[in-house]
Design a protein around this nucleic acid. Structure first.
Length: 187
DNA sequence: TCCCCGATTAACT
DNA sequence: GTTAATCGGGGAG
């Protein structure tokens, strides 16, 4: 990363919320076929698709399908594990819950922008995934996606039950509430 | 070329 | 709960 307040140190986070997008999906950037922007989505799995939106935000996806397929997983929230100071410097906030709890937030915290679009996930590239703490199926909360206007019915949003680091979109409060089932549900 | 709007966030009331 | 910020993508003409 060019601008590196961590001076070469590692940034580590645990993915706690994702959304899936595929070609046959009106909400997906790949829905209308390949373009210059979404080209990476149509490449092989294991690469990073970064897009720019709302005139100011970057969001990071992991390409998942075969070459030519146009599918990816949006990283919506991460629990910061290592390099919190560097993340805070980029984010302009010290609250750990505000560092990576949202797709644009985590991209900013990790210093990821369109410059990282198309890189491969590997230790060589400096950006990679490893297996982390196991999450039981029971602790994966499945819901509908947020922030989109089409294809809203598809239950393709996945988050870790009870995590305090999920994004503030619809259902975030509910996810946190799942951690404390004692409290009665407000109506 | 024009024009609308978005896989969002933060700062408001 | 509402809305400004801010600009590139891509469909329409």
């Amino acid at each position: 990363v060019d601008d590196d307040p961590n001076e070469g140190g590692r940034l580590v986070g645990r993915i706690v919320e994702t959304e899936a997008y595929q070609e046959d999906d009106p909400a997906s950037h790949s829905f209308r076929g390949p373009t210059e922007r979404n080209a990476v989505m149509f490449g092989p799995a294991g690469y990073v698709y970064v897009y720019f939106t709302y005139g100011m935000h970057q969001c990071m996806n992991v390409v998942t399908g075969r070459a030519g397929e146009g599918s990816a997983v949006l990283l919506r929230a991460v629990e910061p594990i290592e390099g919190l100071d560097a993340m805070a410097a980029r984010r302009g906030s010290a609250d750990p819950r505000l560092l990576c709890s949202g797709p644009a937030r985590l991209a900013q915290a990790f210093g990821i922008d369109r410059g990282e679009d198309g890189i491969e996930l590997s230790e060589t590239s400096g950006l990679w995934l490893t297996q982390g703490l196991p999450v039981r199926d029971h602790d994966v909360v499945v819901g509908t996606r947020v922030g989109i206007r089409r294809g809203i019915d598809r239950p393709w949003r996945f988050r870790v039950r009870g995590s305090a680091y999920v994004s503030p979109g619809k259902g975030a409060a509910a996810t946190r509430r799942e951690a404390t089932p004692d409290r009665p549900r407000p109506r």
